[in-house]
Amino acid sequence: MEKVKEILQNYSSEGRENLIPILQDIQDNNGWLSEGSIIEVGNHLNLPVSKIYGVATFYNQFSFQPKGKYHVQVCRGTACHVLGSASVLKELESTLKIKPDQTSKDGLFSLEIVACIGACGLAPVISINGEFHAKITSDSIKQIIDNYKQQQNN
């Protein structure tokens, strides 16, 4: 269930300075910002929904689709780039059949590009639900994704 009303109770309806903290709270709790939640924020702060959507789409930290059960973050920092993260991303896109910031139809995987995640020694690196996978190759990536799919089936 979406938790929006409870979050809004913690914020005064006066003043738009609360907008970003509210959106962050909703993002943290629900994992994404639904249309319904954005409209409710608009009602609460008495701000046009177009404005809220404008602010929310400005920042990468907000997503507009629910995240998958397994959230895949691909590091596109310098070290990872030099060691081939572009092809890792490409491989992931074709394996999962989604683009960055999308979620697969079965709701299992979502994909996100992140700047350096501070594990340059492991480059190219991806993180799935916070678990790091080091020195990724096109072959290993399929294996990793398969493992998660199997985990789901068992």
Binding site: P48, S50, K51, Y53, G54, T57, F58
Partner: peptide, 10 residues
């Protein structure tokens, strides 16, 4: 006073 449009994305 309608604000039906705004800048989206970055």
């Amino acid at each position: 006073g309608v604000s039906c449009i705004d800048f989206i994305n970055r």
